[in-house]
């Protein structure tokens, strides 16, 4: 097992280097630089442009800039935002809890609804419920997040007035950020009104961000169930005269969950991608919002550091899933 873990961890190093190189190169291929992005209609005198480029090191050859950046990152320094002049790492830590909070809610929503639905569809293969679920999940998986989010706001917030439009909490509540997780902070503050506001603000973004994974989990669970239900050990269990609940949940679902766990783990990356759009629509102050802003302002340190940190998270989650998978299915380790 240890050898397996070590081998997996070793593979992370080239992935990390690749991501650093890729994020650096892609950003520098996009026209414009941080200084030009700040220049307005007035333009900038060529001497001042040259002086500023020199000050930030943008007059260096690109490979030199990359090596400098890599050296800096290896020393744990992600640099300072060119826009806010605050440390990239500090900004990330400040914003990341909001993203985690939303992602956890979305994943829970998708698992708690998607897996049981997929299981039922698998058990009732060929029924109207099954066809209905397939139809709905294909639609759900292909839903453009931007459109879906705005539709939800228009219907539930503006039309019906049931949910707030955007943000993490009503602007009227003043909660000091303590853990960064609003659901925890409002609980510490023992402010019921603030907590109600926090949870109501979570509803729409959770649904919007959770829709695509929900559809995927449901379809995956369904097909895994179908596969497992045809296995010999299920027939054996039936022959032994076990109750259908025990067969379906303990024998079938547990085995069917192995590929589903992988899909859940892999969807974390997609979820962070979806979070970028969801956060933009719902003005959710997380890292998605932060990275989008940095693209517009050509804020290289934030963009590179943010991409790198997101990559590290996705890599770690995938590593974790691989470990978990090897626990669930010992054959993998060999």
């Amino acid at each position: 097992m240890l050898r397996y873990v070590l081998r997996r961890v070793m593979l992370v190093v080239p992935t990390f280097l690749g991501v650093t190189l890729l994020s650096f190169t892609l950003i520098h291929l996009v026209p414009g630089d941080p200084i030009e992005a700040r220049v307005g209609e007035r333009g900038i005198a060529p001497e001042r442009l040259a002086a500023l480029r020199h000050e930030f090191g943008y007059d260096q050859p690109i490979w030199q800039q990359f090596l400098d950046y890599l050296w800096q990152v290896l020393h744990g320094d992600l640099g300072v935002s060119l826009v806010t002049h605050r440390g990239v790492w500090a900004e990330f830590l400040m914003l990341f809890p909001a993203t985690i909070e939303l992602a956890l809610c979305a994943i829970s929503f998708a698992v708690l609804i998607g897996v049981p639905l997929g299981m039922i569809a698998g058990l009732r293969r060929g029924t109207a419920f099954d066809f209905g679920l397939i139809g709905v999940s294909v639609t759900g998986a292909s839903m453009p997040i931007f459109w879906w989010g705005l539709m939800m706001i228009l219907i539930f917030s503006v039309g019906l007035g049931w949910t707030p439009v955007s943000g993490r909490i009503s602007d009227l509540f003043f909660i000091e950020p303590w853990s960064g997780f609003m659901t925890i902070d409002c609980w510490w503050a023992e402010d019921d009104g603030a907590c109600r506001s926090t949870w109501s603000h979570l509803i729409l973004p959770t649904i919007v961000l959770g829709t695509i994974p929900l559809a995927n989990f449901a379809r995956m669970t369904r097909s895994a169930m179908l596969e497992v239900l045809g296995e010999d050990y299920i027939r054996t269990a039936r022959a032994k005269g076990l109750g259908s609940l025990r067969i379906n949940v303990v024998h079938a679902l547990r085995n069917a969950l192995i590929p589903v766990v992988t899909v859940i783990g892999l969807s974390i990356g997609g979820l962070l991608g979806g979070a970028i759009l969801t956060e933009t629509i719902f003005a959710w102050p997380g890292i998605g919002h932060w990275i989008i802003e940095s693209i517009q302002g050509r804020d290289y340190p934030v963009l590179q550091g943010g991409t790198l940190l997101v990559a590290v998270i996705v890599i770690s989650v995938n590593l974790g899933v691989d470990m978990l998978y090897s626990v669930l299915n010992p054959r993998i380790r060999r």
């Binding site: 003043f174 000091e176 503050a189 023992e190 402010d191």
Partner: peptide
Amino acid sequence: GALVASLGVAQ
């Protein structure tokens, strides 16, 4: 927390 909460209500 209670202090912050009371501030919240006052606000």
